[in-house]
Computed example of a mutant assay.
Amino acid sequence: MNLDILYKLREQLKNSIITGSSLIKEDFRLKKATEDMAALSKLAPVFAQIEKQALDLPICDNPGEKALDLLALIDAVLETQAGIYENKELSDIEGGSGKLLKNYSYKMLEPVITALTTTGSGRYDILVNARKDTPEIFLDYRVFPKYIEGLGDSYSELAYLISRWMVEDGKMMIEPLKRGFDPMGKNDMYLRLEVISKLARGKENDFYLSIVNNPDSKKDIKRKAIESLKYCKENIDILLEIAKTADKASKAEAMNVLKTFSDTRIDEFFEDLAKKKK
């Protein structure tokens, strides 16, 4: 499945908002991009919802506000579905779209969005209570991008708590967290990788290896990637190489992972290591 049509609609929406919402009714480029959505609308409910909102723009009373809402929805869909282009995976799109299209009022969303995007006291309790009462509110398309950004919250305890919630949300979080991943990043990237590892396990082995093999990867992120190699026995030779040639911290992490496997190659490595120490 090709999402170029959706990207095109997003760009036209941005241009329309910049040039002025009063001109949306006469914007022929936006009209053409909306018409093209018909090709996607039959594939999944979320695309049909986007098409409907786009068609309503020229006839609604507040096109500027509606255009911003539609842009947020498109961004959320592209964020969660990037990399999923196979028709056989359309069920994943349909399954996630229902959570993204909950009809929450702004009155309900505003405290959560504010708590995720500001600093100060009181935010922790607001988010904990929201998670307890309406956990799916964090998957609303207007909240979702801020939810991911919450992994970089200045209050480390809150950032860690958000990462635990994402694990509870399940595998739909894997693709959004992989998008824009920076192996040279800060604690938010470390938490992203931790969540991905817990959810995907060995299915993202190539992703872990790309971080391990990147010479610019931050040390703590690289160590977490090395730890994530524990899910596939095929990584034994790579782990042995790391344990022999890498920096001290990486060596130690690789050895810890090697101890979880049972293999003669590993036995020989530790026997040789013991002889050298003697």
Rank of each mutant, 00 (worst) to 15 (best):
L57V: 05
K25V: 13
G83Y: 04
T34I: 01
K14Y: 02
G95Y: 12
E89S: 15
K25N: 09
L100R: 12
I93A: 08
Y104T: 05
V46R: 05
P58V: 03
Q53V: 06
I17H: 01
P45L: 04
D4Y: 09
R29T: 11
A67P: 09
I74H: 03
L43D: 11
A54L: 09
Q49I: 08
P63L: 10
A33Q: 04
L40G: 01
E86N: 09
N87I: 07
S97R: 07
F28L: 13
L9Q: 02
N15P: 02
E11F: 06
G83C: 05
K42W: 06
K88S: 12
F28S: 10
L23Y: 14
A33E: 03
K25W: 01
I84S: 04
S21P: 11
A33V: 01
L71Q: 03
F28G: 00
D92C: 05
Q53P: 04
A48C: 07
A67E: 07
L6K: 03
Y85P: 00
L57T: 02
N62K: 12
K14I: 09
L68F: 10
L68R: 13
N87P: 04
I59M: 02
V46W: 06
E65S: 07
L70E: 06
M37D: 01
E26S: 05
L40S: 01
A76E: 13
V46C: 10
I17T: 02
I84C: 00
S41F: 02
N62E: 14
I93D: 03
A76H: 15
Y7P: 04
D61A: 14
L6M: 09
L40V: 00
L6W: 04
A72P: 05
N87L: 12
N15I: 13
E51Q: 14
C60F: 00
A54V: 13
M37C: 06
A54H: 12
Q12T: 06
D4A: 12
